[in-house]
Amino acid sequence: MKNHGMCLQNNDRELELEFRYNSSSFFRKSLRKLWQTIINYLVAHQELKVWQKMDRHGNIYWQAYDPVTGKSFMSGSESDMRAWIEQIYR
């Protein structure tokens, strides 16, 4: 019986160590995921944003905003939009 008791105690210790390792690993993974989310948020708020809109007459036009420079641009022409973007990044 004593041997079974010792064996059970050893198993309990192994389970306890395994639990500590798993919870530590979970904590590291959670922390890494949180950090990546923060980085993605910060980077996304510095990227050039370009979108299409439609006025009340059904005309489609382009708008862009660069949060780094604070500049914005609006045009009915996609080629004008491309030219403005190229000018910003030169």
Rank of each mutant, 00 (worst) to 15 (best):
A44H: 01
K33T: 15
M6D: 14
N11M: 11
Y61H: 10
R13V: 09
D12V: 12
K29T: 15
Q63T: 13
S25M: 04
M54I: 09
N10K: 10
N22S: 01
E47G: 11
G58D: 06
K33Q: 04
Q46T: 08
E14W: 02
N40M: 09
Q52F: 10
Q9M: 12
R13M: 14
W62T: 12
K49H: 07
L34N: 07
T37G: 08
R28H: 00
R32L: 11
K2P: 03
R13Y: 08
Q52C: 15
S24F: 01
L42I: 01
Q9V: 06
M6T: 07
I60M: 00
S24W: 02
V50L: 06
N11K: 04
E14L: 06
D12L: 04
D55G: 01
V50E: 05
K49F: 03
L15S: 09
H45G: 09
N22P: 03
W62N: 11
K29M: 05
M1W: 06
Q52E: 14
C7H: 10
E16I: 05
N59V: 08
W62H: 13
R28K: 05
K29W: 06
K2T: 06
Q36Y: 14
L34A: 03
K2Y: 13
H57G: 06
K2H: 14
T37H: 07
S30T: 07
L15K: 12
A64S: 10
E14S: 02
E16R: 06
F26N: 13
D55S: 00
N22D: 04
